[in-house]
Design a protein around this nucleic acid. Structure first.
Lengths: 233, 233
DNA sequence: TTCTCATATAATCGGAGTTATTCTCGGTCA
DNA sequence: TGACCGAGAATAACTCCGATTATATGAGAA
């Protein structure tokens, strides 16, 4: 959460967040035209610079498009930069929370095994050591639950780092945000890491052995197990 | 290309592009501090509003971070929003073009089969018809090569649409940009779609039959074949 | 060391002029 | 009569500008 909070610094970011949330909530529908600049200035009580920066943030994330004479219109959801952690946080209040989480798991189920495979293939010894360090922090049986959660998140992110694929990193950033929600859920359900700890270790060992297929398969197993815990049918 | 060109509208976008390219090219290194606002205003000859919007674009894409007293610094590549088509276009001049393309293929090899599976599972009849329509435009043996390429791109994108997973769409947008480069390569190598056309049809049929596993496997086959054509060893 | 304060820098402000796109309307041609 | 086109008006975003405010850092004092 802290990482997301940092992005909310500044007046433009807050205003962009307000409008962004109104869009994800459906209060502002696709194709709607926002009030014209002069009106919004009066309504929000901010300067032109601030408002324009806020709108620039939204257009960069694919939420709106401004054209002279036409005004500023809301773009279709397919253009939204959904992998942006900030955008994910905007969707935190939406109704279809379950569907959102499930869609994210579908991605993880496909991406994390790939990351594990690439980490086994291309990760440096130093990077493998980082993954191991994160695992050991998980296994230490910390008193503080938060530290264990942080370690779990670090474990997954270090794998992404070791994969040396720059397209993977944006996905990792949104997974980080998701993990800070799903891990506490998992721990609450099982009273600790439980089975999950052994599965993490299995992935670690496969990566260290540079056994690509094994790393791939074990990562898939872990995500699938997590998925089932979060969507007990 | 046209889709990317549209995003370059406006003075702030052009300036952001200039700076963004200088960052991806390594001319501006990670941790470097940009000239202070007042200096850049003089150098670029634009207004404060324009410059601030340009910097806001770059910070939204994770390229820079501005702090009072400290200045505006270039962030590490791991924070870049690499899946943004605009960012991809900035990297078009970078040296490691081969590595970039290969990393993108790694992602496609993992994501597109998933998209095909989900399209088979959740795609509506209308969406399946869209995929078929795109395939038929490919198969028609058009005189205009560009139309065939557009149809090929549409085929892949329609599958993403039919998958009904909002996290998949940002990946699709960058794949679109990549396809407009790789498809002509493929066609030049084989003198048309060649084998590729039959593979597309196989995917289409599996999706229409709603055979998830078959759709998954055949999509993987297509991407792997394309990969080999582009990286003949 | 720790706290306070000066200072450099980005952040915000608000008013005015410019530019680009669309819409309208009048005219022309089939 | 109907559809098509080009010039112009209208509207909204775009750009510019100079001043003020907030904030983070580093120096200096306690």
């Amino acid at each position: 959460m802290k990482a997301i909070a940092r992005e909310d610094r500044g007046l433009p970011a807050r205003i962009a967040g307000d409008i962004g949330r109104r869009i994800t909530l459906g209060e502002l529908k696709v194709g709607d035209t926002l009030p014209k600049e002069a009106d919004m200035l009066a309504t929000l009580g901010v300067s032109r610079t601030t408002l324009r920066e806020a709108l620039k943030i939204l257009s960069t994330k694919g939420f709106i498009e401004a054209k002279p004479r036409l005004g500023t219109r809301v773009k279709a959801a397919e253009h939204w930069n959904t992998l942006d952690p900030v955008v994910l946080s905007w969707q935190g209040d939406a109704e279809d929370q379950e569907a959102l989480a499930e869609e994210l798991f579908e991605i993880r189920l496909s991406i994390e095994p790939l990351a594990a495979r690439l980490a086994a293939k291309r990760g440096s010894a130093a990077e493998h050591a980082e993954i191991r360090a994160a695992f050991q922090r998980m296994a230490e049986g910390n008193v503080r639950v938060e530290e264990a959660i942080e370690a779990d998140i670090a474990f997954h992110l270090q794998i992404f780092q070791a994969a040396h694929n720059r397209f993977l990193l944006p996905v990792a950033s949104v997974i980080r945000a998701a993990l800070s929600i799903s891990i506490p859920k998992t721990m609450a359900a099982t009273g600790g890491f439980g089975q999950s700890l052994a599965q993490h270790e299995a992935i670690l060992l496969a990566i260290e052995e540079r056994d690509e297929d094994k790393a791939f398969e074990r990562a898939a197993t872990l995500i699938a197990a997590t998925y089932k815990r979060n969507f007990a049918s």
